[in-house]
């Protein structure tokens, strides 16, 4: 938990001009993220989820003609990774990402180690970049685990070669994997947006729990706002608006409209969150 601080020497009175090598600082941060047992447990849980869904659907034969992606998974394994992403990105992935972002700045502040970092010969922008990279790595890891587990479960347990798209066309395995990669990339951008905002919240507080509550709470509130018809005008601003359109990668040709607007929105959130985190750190007194 003492994080990066223990790795970086404190300056000795005189301001040193050579700062710690960037690669080493990043490596140390990533190492810390990976060494936290709760992060590893989270990844393990994520890996289990697609296996669980795939197995249950294969055993029960699916929801029997219901709507949604669940019905599409039966005998059509390549849908499973996308379904798993769709199910996890609503709360589970944001929760895990917020957890890492909370450890990054608020956790360090709570331990008193952030002060050391702020005094250390690491620029403040750099410090936020390093923390952001830690969050980003967790985003990629988490999504990678879900997708990998989903693809393997899809191939081994659910079965089916290639992908029957929602439009009824059949894609060969290679192209199907391409679609899955597309969904994963899109989801990564969305989750990076959540991470950036969580990091911004994390920079303002020293209570890790607050970061979790604020991030996940905001997502829940967004979901509620979306459901109120008279607040339709608010929808374009809510990050969650297009999250269900991740299944659009499964239609043929791909429905791009919502995916692209989702990307633009996530980009805005990333810029917003990262800038806010930098602004807060730059003005923070030690």
């Amino acid at each position: 938990m003492t994080g990066t601080a223990s790795r970086v020497e404190l300056p000795s009175g005189i301001r040193q001009h050579h700062s710690a090598p960037f690669g080493r600082v990043v490596g140390s941060e990533l190492g810390w993220v990976l060494r936290r047992p709760r992060n590893l447990l989270a990844l393990l849980g994520l890996a289990a989820l697609p296996v669980l869904i795939g197995t249950v659907i294969t055993i029960t034969g699916g929801p029997g003609g219901g709507s949604g992606l669940f019905a599409a998974v039966v005998g059509n394994g390549m849908v499973l990774p996308v379904l798993s992403l769709m199910l996890t990105q609503n709360l589970l992935l944001p929760l895990i990402i917020a957890m890492v972002a909370a450890d990054g700045l608020a956790g360090e502040a709570a331990n008193g180690t952030l002060r050391g970092l702020l005094l250390a010969p690491v620029g403040r922008v750099r410090l936020v970049v390093v923390k952001a990279l830690g969050v980003l790595m967790m985003v990629l890891l988490a999504i990678g685990v879900v997708v990998l587990s989903g693809v393997l479960t899809g191939l081994l347990i659910v079965g089916g070669d290639g992908l029957v798209t929602l439009s009824g066309t059949t894609l060969p395995l290679g192209e199907a994997l391409g679609r899955v990669a597309l969904a994963a990339g899109w989801c990564a951008v969305q989750m990076a947006a959540v991470g950036a905002v969580a990091l911004a919240i994390s920079s303002t507080t020293e209570h890790s729990l607050l970061v979790l509550i604020a991030t996940v709470g905001a997502l829940v509130v967004f979901g509620v706002l979306e459901a109120i018809p008279s607040l339709d005008w608010l929808k374009p601003v809510l990050i969650t608006t297009d999250w269900y359109s991740i299944s659009d990668v499964l239609s043929d040709p791909i429905r791009t409209t919502d995916l692209l607007s989702g990307l633009w929105r996530a980009g805005c959130y990333i810029l917003l969150g990262f800038s806010a985190a930098v602004a807060r750190m730059a003005t923070k007194d030690t």
Binding site: L234, V237, C268, I270, V278, A282
Partner: peptide, 18 residues
């Protein structure tokens, strides 16, 4: 200042969607 500009740009980008 730069970061504030970034916040403003992000907010603007979001409003452009609305």
């Amino acid at each position: 200042l730069t970061a504030s500009a970034g916040i403003a740009a992000g907010a603007l980008g979001l409003t452009s969607l609305a």
